[in-house]
Design a binder for these strands. Structure first.
Lengths: 400, 400
DNA sequence: GGAATATAATACACTCAGTAAAGAATGTCG
DNA sequence: CGACATTCTTTACTGAGTGTATTATATTCC
């Protein structure tokens, strides 16, 4: 396994380029002097680097804001509309593709239902076609394609390693299957990590280095950012908390374990809890979306069931927070759509079960990004990795 | 907050120096060519760097092993006995100090009982005196002092932030208190992280990048290595799993939560379980050490109690493993001293409660380092951080 | 207005970490 | 011995970052 690799002259330059681009994107600096301060590099160096970025068309100079004294600094802005990011997503229910600009604005978006019975080969072809169509409508050069996968994957082989509901997918090389339709590098990422990245780049937590992104719909998973970088763990299973037991005497799960979090905190759990509580076992249990509508509408039984299930989700997340001590936790996906009751319940549980010192320092929030945050995050994942070698990404595409 | 800082020429050089030293220490390369391959740097560069290290006295050339053809390579060895590491530890029960060489061999060791009633100021003075005495007996230059602390601390202020059994300690600046008695930089680290570092540098897991080090005695905690670096989390509380609830209907804990792991998996829990099971509630419950002796001796009641408590510990760790997906888990401290029964029990629980893909890739082991692994780890913590700027550490001390 | 001052950005010579290329050193093999 | 093969060093070179002086542009104060 390749350990850390040495810093040759190339790595030095690329690293500093990346650093400057990231600082500009995050709004951590808007002038050359500020960049020098933020990076620790000297002004002369920043001048050189910025000139490079301006040459590529990635950065523009604007009239800077007023200064109390001295020469007014030139403002620097990342041009969001000159390079574009491709994004794709495979889900239990659908496949989707999009093109984003560097500000995270979706410019093209397409979605299609997934046909699980089609088999992996055919589904991958369908996704490739969808992606090809979408990226063809991009208004400019697409520098990379990110793919949000519904579960852990093997980064070396480009294959999903485990995912109920995706039989046969372990046999297809997703990265390879998409490389043909795109004239840019393709990057795979777990969708929960995509969500975390989207939050880190475009959400309310851009300054945080340690972020926990909890996804809860039919399953429960988490994306992890540690020290500003995605954390995958040894084999890509970091954050797979859905099958962590929160009750060792609980009911049997399909995974063979007992009392898994998914049995207590998921859309299915919500349906079961609601059906049982409302005693309406006569008819079919309403869908999770319907129950969530009733929660927002104020129906007492729905709210009770929701409170209970969300409380159990929060209880499961307590263990994660104690393990990771993140700066912030963001919840996302369908289960958060119960209105203000969600955060109320979660914060109540966290307050009771976390150590006070940890709870006080913790920021808890719900996804507020418009659109599909994990699809956006797929684009971010591509950008994040492209910034390991910025010149490779922007120089070529910039010459137009 | 200082984000990533730019790579100036200095950082480049120091980074590559560090990389070479780490590669040599880990035995990942023993010749210049191997170093070039391992780091990605060119041979000419390695020649320069190695010359520097030889000048400092850190590296020696040996007669290399035979080669099938061509010139025989010169072997390179890290001189373990030219620079030395100071280590200190504060614990519930004792304070300790030691001097290690770079091979992790203890050369000087002193220990003293802690007097909790003395107050923080006096205890710190006692520790400082102990450290001073110990380091004075070092056979050569001590390049840094690492201090293993019994709980989370604030790296900025040098203060313990929370620790039951350490009243008043939040008010004293430990780093400052020790800086006076040592003519070298002082570094603080959580003792669980120290253990993890010791395992990473001198244990059986030197090639692993993600390591989980579980410490269990009167309390339960964990040290985390992510991507080869210690992971602290947002405020140093990462790995504090002792007060994670594994049973939301469990008994009340002193922390205010219910069913905390510490109530089920600790030396106190072992005593309680054993006392209850053996029905010997008439007399005093035997000490944990005594029970562990009986476990090794084969007493059925002791083994039953031990199995149960260790099983609960493992159950608590399952959540951590699912969250982090480490390459390996190492258990340490008093609770592992039950002989082969420990690993048997732990592996049984992990096998049942982890996802098969995660369990299969996971290495589980028990601390086998001689002596006090966390005291050794304190020294490693110092070394690890000194290697952020190797020239600062070795150049000065090398001129003798 | 004009001088003094302050801040931003650039120009230019310079430093030195890393490198390409050639050569020296040291081994095996026929 | 000479023909390889491999390791290590030397030399001249490249170029990223930098110190310093200079230029550009603002405010302030007389």
């Amino acid at each position: 396994m390749q350990y850390d690799s040495g810093i040759n002259r190339d790595a030095q330059k690329e690293g500093n380029l990346s650093l400057v681009i990231r600082a500009l994107h995050a709004g951590r600096a808007e002038t050359r002097v500020a960049l020098a301060r933020a990076t620790g590099l000297k002004q002369a160096t920043i001048t050189k680097i910025v000139r490079q970025l301006v040459d590529w068309g990635l950065v523009s100079e604007t009239t800077g804001r007023e200064a109390p004294m001295g020469r007014r600094p030139m403002g620097l802005t990342l041009n969001a509309d000159r390079f574009f990011l491709g994004a794709a997503r495979i889900n239990r229910n659908y496949i989707a593709a999009a093109v984003y600009d560097l500000a995270g604005t979706p410019l093209v978006f397409e979605q299609a239902d997934r046909c699980p019975e089609d088999g992996a080969e055919a589904s991958l072809s369908a996704l490739a076609a969808l992606v090809g169509r979408t990226l063809a409508r991009a208004p400019g050069p697409v520098i990379g394609l990110g793919v949000a996968l519904p579960g852990p994957f093997n980064a070396r082989t480009g294959r999903i390693t485990l995912m109920s509901g995706f039989p046969g997918w372990a046999a297809v090389d997703i990265q390879k299957g998409l490389r043909g339709v795109v004239d840019a590098p393709v990057f795979l990422e777990h969708d929960a990590n995509c969500g975390a990245l989207a939050e880190l780049w475009y959400g309310e937590h851009r300054r945080d280095e340690n972020l926990l992104y909890v996804v809860c719909d039919r399953g429960v998973g988490a994306g992890l950012i540690a020290g500003g970088r995605v954390y995958h763990g040894a084999s890509g299973y970091a954050g797979e908390i859905g099958h962590t037991s929160i009750n060792f005497a609980g009911p049997l799960c399909e995974c063979g374990n007992r009392g898994c979090l998914e049995l207590y905190a998921s859309s299915e759990a919500l349906r079961a809890t609601y059906a049982q509580a409302s005693l309406s076992a006569g008819g079919d249990a309403p869908s999770a979306s319907e129950i969530l509508r009733r929660v927002r509408g104020g129906e007492a039984a729905a709210r009770d069931a929701y409170r209970r299930v969300v409380g159990q989700l929060a209880f499961g997340v307590v263990g994660l927070i104690n393990a990771l001590n993140p700066d912030c936790v963001v919840f996302a996906d369908r289960m958060v759509e119960g209105g203000e009751l969600f955060l109320e319940t979660v914060e109540g549980v966290l307050c009771r079960h976390l150590m006070p010192e940890v709870y006080r320092a913790l920021k808890v929030s719900v996804n507020r990004l418009p659109g599909d945050p994990m699809l956006l995050g797929a684009g971010v994942a591509a950008l994040d990795r492209l910034l390991d070698r910025p010149s490779g990404a922007f120089r070529r595409a910039g010459v137009s």
